[in-house]
Amino acid sequence: MGTFIQQIVNGLTVGGIYALIALGYTMVYGVMRLINFAHGDLCILGAFVGLTMLTGSAGGGHPGAALLLLAFVVSIIAIAVAGVVLERIAYRPLRKADRLAAVVSALGASLMIENGIMLVWGPQVHVFPSNLLPATTWHVAGATISFIQVMIILASLVLMAALYLFVNHTRFGTAIRAAAIDQDAARLMGINVNRVITSVFIIGPGLGAIGGLFIGIYYREAYFTMGWTYGLYAFIAAILGGIGNIPGAMLGGVLLGLFNAFAAGYVSSSWQDAITFGLLIVILLVRPTGLLGERVAEKV
């Protein structure tokens, strides 16, 4: 029982992080039908920006809650700006081009950001300070729950709820959903599709920066190739829920986190990733549109 609850808590923590990053993939895909391969790297860039804030200005002392908050804010702003710039430079000129041109541009952006991180911060693994958060732990039914886990789970829930409300209950959220269904029709209805796309490249990378910083704080490390690994996991989460579908990305993230946590309990770690990818392929075979995605018929 104790390990069961422990796996649930671990799974929800990681799942919350996956969901935050998956939202960036799914929102961009929903509006632009583009897999933003650079998204994972943007998130990890967020972790590095945050780390620099935390270690650079603290001077070795206790960072304190204010500084932690500042690190998050600066990281979110920096990554949102990076996301908007990326869209302007690498994706916007290719909107009318062959879709594969945008895919390769995204792959190029990923390489650029990943290696840009390496050039600035170096190829070594960076360690996050251990004293960022209280070391409080709770013991519930034989499971150990740490302060950081509670923080990550709560923060992801709040952020996801806020996004859900924003998308479903505001005018601008409706514009985002309309643009996702049919860009041309949305444009005819007077929706500024460019603004929608820009907003998606603010919200997605902004949430991603939070996810990236959470990864750094939770695993207490950051290295430049991390974006691929976690980006791929978050991307699988987005597919699992139905790519393009916002609640789907949330559900997919949490389910994938739980799946990984439980798989870790029963399968050797060297095959664990293979099982996750196997799951991905099974989903694509059985229900390519994911759990919450809708089937679309081709118009003849």
Partner: peptide, 8 residues
């Protein structure tokens, strides 16, 4: 790094 920029 240059490679990525070149691809874009």
């Amino acid at each position: 790094f240059v490679f990525g920029i070149a691809m874009i």
